[in-house]
Simulated scan of single mutants.
Amino acid sequence: MSTDGTHDEPELTFQPIVFAALRARLPAVAQSVVGAVVHEVAEYAVPLQQGNMAANIANAVRLALDGFLRMAQPATGGKQPSGELAIALDGAYALGRGEARSGRSIDSLLAAYRIGARVAWREWGTTAVEQHVSPQEMVRFAERLFAYIDQLSAASVAGHGDELTESGRAREQQRERLGRALLAGAPVDQLIAYAERAGWEPPRTLTVVLVGADRARLLSGVLGGRTLSLAADVAEDRQLPDHVRILLVPNTGDDRSTVWAALGNEPAIVGPCRPWVHARQSYTRAARVLLMHGPAPGGVDTERHLTDLVLNADPEAVADLRARVLAPLNDLPAATAGRLAETLLSWLLHQGRREDVARDLTVHPQTVRYRMTQLRELYGDTLLHRATTLQLILALSGRT
């Protein structure tokens, strides 16, 4: 092949009358090619029988075949063979991109090219024989025709691949924008617009799963193509480690059974199931549990940590509450304060039932009685107040 993309094959030495005969057959050859493609390639059977598309394809076939004849015939002015080839290859490239946009695989188009080459050779070969073309020239003619079809096929493959790459990249960008908006809690109309641009059909619910980036691709594939997979840094709060990836999984069910089945023994954090426009709630809870406990094999269910989440919602407020309600114990030795705090929490949770407290703490009921006498001296009548009871339970539950 030369540097300009043309083959270094000698020109055909057909007499002008032969080229005239081949060109006269061109409309019939093009029609035969289209008919054969419709008959033999099922994916084109319906589209090529429909109005405008059938006319467009028939015209494209005629142009491709005409381009070949112009390339094969010795130049007598006008476009040189390399120029004709460039035009034909540009058309084939565009055809490949169009097939990708239509959702068809490249296989059908390549099959159509093969059929076209076979039919064109049969039709034009018959004409060439009628024009008494020599066997050597017939062989050369066939080589030139099939080489031309190979070049068109390669151009279409390139166009098809480029379209898929670019459309895939664009789709991923749109999905990332959608994911950012979901995690940011954007307005519903904005979320719907992003979903439409991304070609993503909104599900009923979304569940956030936080998983290691090295396992995210496999897991998102198992969970389905509508699962959104986002890097940790897309979240506005930027609180997750870089090695974590955020999956937004559609329609897991309230029990999130599809997630548990997919996880197997993979370490992860699984947030609650929420309506898709409120996916931020699932993300926020999953992120908080990740920072509090870290992932565990088989997945950590955030719904099993609701108490911890409540107690740690405002760490400073919890610390202030503990300092205030446990102040009466401050002057005691640490070991004594610890025993009294443990007894007080059990007494509050068991609603003052001394025998139950003794069993819970594995001590004698008289020990419970003695400790509670000390606590009543320290707290006085406030132990009878409902507000104090709630505050003490919260403070003592998170005491370390």
Rank of each mutant, 00 (worst) to 15 (best):
Y44W: 09
E11I: 03
L311Y: 10
W124T: 00
Q351G: 12
T258K: 14
H385S: 15
R399D: 11
A154S: 13
N59F: 14
V33E: 02
D150E: 13
D320Y: 13
D8N: 09
V222P: 00
L390Q: 10
V234M: 04
L248P: 02
R144F: 03
N251Y: 06
L145E: 05
R376G: 08
E377G: 14
E43C: 09
Y370A: 14
G78I: 04
I192L: 13
G161H: 10
E342P: 05
W260E: 01
E99G: 02
W347G: 03
L230N: 02
Y93S: 03
S102K: 11
H132V: 05
V249N: 00
K79T: 08
D237G: 06
E342I: 03
G352Y: 08
L394Q: 15
A120E: 00
I149R: 06
G96P: 02
L345T: 04
L218N: 13
V318M: 14
S108V: 07
Y93D: 01
A184H: 04
Q151A: 12
V310G: 08
S257Y: 08
A86G: 09
R285A: 01
N251H: 09
N312E: 14
T126G: 13
V249A: 00
Q173T: 15
D308Y: 10
L206A: 08
Y93C: 04
E355W: 08
E172M: 14
L340T: 05
G35T: 05
R180C: 04
L329M: 05
L394M: 15
T76G: 12
G264Q: 06
T336H: 07
T367K: 05
D320L: 14
R359M: 12
V18C: 01
V270P: 00
D301N: 11
L326R: 06
V259K: 00
A28D: 12
I192F: 11
E201M: 14
P250S: 09
F146A: 04
T205H: 05
V38N: 05
P10M: 05
R217C: 12
P333G: 10
V249G: 00
W347D: 15
G225W: 08
V139S: 12
Y370I: 13
V119D: 00
Q15F: 00
I192M: 11
A216N: 01
Q151V: 03
E11V: 02
R97E: 07
I149G: 02
P295I: 11
L12K: 01
L218G: 15
P275I: 07
Q366R: 15
H293I: 12
A55I: 13
A334L: 14
L321S: 07
A88S: 08
V61Q: 10
A181F: 07
T6E: 09
A235Y: 02
D301R: 05
G98D: 08
L311H: 11
I269E: 00
P187C: 04
A54G: 15
D107M: 10
L48R: 04
N312W: 05
N59T: 15
D242R: 11
S153R: 08
H243M: 13
D214G: 13
Q190N: 11
L383D: 02
R324E: 15
R226E: 13
E84Y: 13
